[in-house]
Write a protein that binds this DNA or RNA. Structure first.
Lengths: 123, 123
DNA sequence: ATTATTGTATTAGGTGCTTAATACAATAAT
DNA sequence: ATTATTGTATTAAGCACCTAATACAATAAT
């Protein structure tokens, strides 16, 4: 999963979401060290300041912590990660259902559209 | 459906989406006149320039057209509206499924979460 | 001890978005 | 004819975001 940054939203916000996602998906496992600010910034082709801003927010939330010179690490609190994952999933579903409802789709229609598109996407 | 504007994305982009949504949902019916730029701006509590920007984009797309002094109207092309609605729905589903997949959810799990939350949301 | 790497902080400049304040042009309403 | 309303355009200011260029502090590595 590469860094997918669009221009229609603040980059730092997108970085927060994508790093959060990597933690929840286990790409950055609990307790593991993540790359340095500068390395991550280069990976994502953004300014180190922008990456630092995103990391500081995740640290504030408790998903990351830093050791002054040895680097930054994912929390060992797997329960917090699990809750975060569930919270994100619930938000996704709610936003999705609201938009579909606003577009005038019924519950049954939504399920059939999903099943149509899910095959090509969920492998 | 009031104007729900968040601060994490450009306002004009959100206005485009919400007006598009109103057209697709039939709140602004085909051929009908929509409120003036100034009135819409006041409704949404935004600057007239910002509203104008959104309307200009929808006009460029063909969903709206304007008569110099009598106002702005929704296209009579119901086929275009139908296609737009389907395009938006497909996009929503794809974005949703991708995010859920990235979070590590299987197809079956997604369906069960939806059915859990759908009751309280869909009517 | 010295060096390199880490997180962190500061300053300056550029860009896009939004608002505010006008103004103009066209035409519907009176 | 005059007035009011419509879409449209212009200019200036403020703000948030992003980048660039540094610099500092702490400590792991040598």
């Amino acid at each position: 999963m590469g860094w997918e940054l669009k221009t229609d939203r603040p980059i730092y916000a997108q970085l927060i979401e994508q790093i959060e996602l990597r933690i929840c998906a286990g790409i950055y496992p609990p307790g593991s060290r993540i790359p340095s600010v500068r390395d991550l910034a280069q990976e994502a082709s953004v300014n180190p300041n922008t990456m630092q801003r995103a990391l500081a927010k995740l640290e504030e939330d408790g998903l990351l912590y830093s050791h002054r010179t040895s680097g930054r690490f994912v929390t060992e609190d797997t329960e917090m990660i699990r809750k975060t994952r569930n919270k994100l999933a619930k938000e996704q579903v709610q936003v999705f259902l609201k938009k579909m409802k606003d577009l005038g789709f019924e519950y049954g229609e939504i399920l059939s559209i999903i099943s149509d598109l899910a095959e090509e996407m969920m492998e």
